[in-house]
């Protein structure tokens, strides 16, 4: 997979998060992994369909997810990862991916659409994306560690 394919997604992540209450979005690392990856905590899953197809996963630990949701809700205390917190994190995933599609269109990849977000909450899980290789990007967002996995291929 051409690694520059993820630039619009990175741009979207760094554009959108400051709009929803975060002050610092730092990209720590990018790596190429296989189609299968381990997760522990939460994963937001969003599919992309169009000239590119596949999925984007946004993952973090459960404690990080509570902290993240709390920041999104202007500091409201989040002790349980309840429906409100789940809804906030899902909406963040939707916003990032929706905006990424717009960023893709600015580099000539038009007409992409996304599915609604689904949330997976679990321990010691494995995710397999429908691509031979996945790009893993690690961000630190206001001291919260977040992994974004991008598995996209060109549609035939």
């Amino acid at each position: 997979m051409d690694i520059t394919i993820i630039n619009p997604l990175i741009a979207s992540f760094t554009d959108i998060l400051p709009q929803i209450g975060f002050s610092s979005v730092e990209r720590r690392s990018i790596s190429l992994v296989g189609s299968t990856l381990d997760y522990d905590g939460i994963l937001v899953h969003i599919s992309l369909v169009g000239v590119l197809k596949g999925a984007v996963l946004i993952g973090m630990s459960l404690d990080s997810a509570k902290l993240f949701a709390s920041k999104m809700m202007m500091g409201m205390s989040v002790t349980e990862f309840d429906l409100l917190a789940q809804s906030a994190i899902s909406e963040m995933g939707n916003m990032v991916c929706a905006n990424a599609c717009t960023q893709f269109s600015q580099v000539g990849i038009t007409g992409l659409d996304i599915s609604p977000p689904l949330l997976l909450i679990g321990r010691n899980g494995q995710a397999t994306l429908p691509v031979p290789q996945t790009i893993a990007i690690n961000f630190t967002v206001d001291s919260i560690d977040i992994n974004v996995y991008v598995g996209l291929i060109q549609s035939k």
Binding site: K53, L57, N94, L118, L119, G122, R123
Partner: peptide, 21 residues
């Protein structure tokens, strides 16, 4: 309607939530 390729998740006890759908 058009479909995306499938993503597969393996884990017992993983909760699946769809808070906005």
């Amino acid at each position: 309607l058009r479909v995306s390729p499938p993503s597969v998740f393996c884990s017992t006890n993983t909760e699946i939530a769809s808070p906005n759908l």
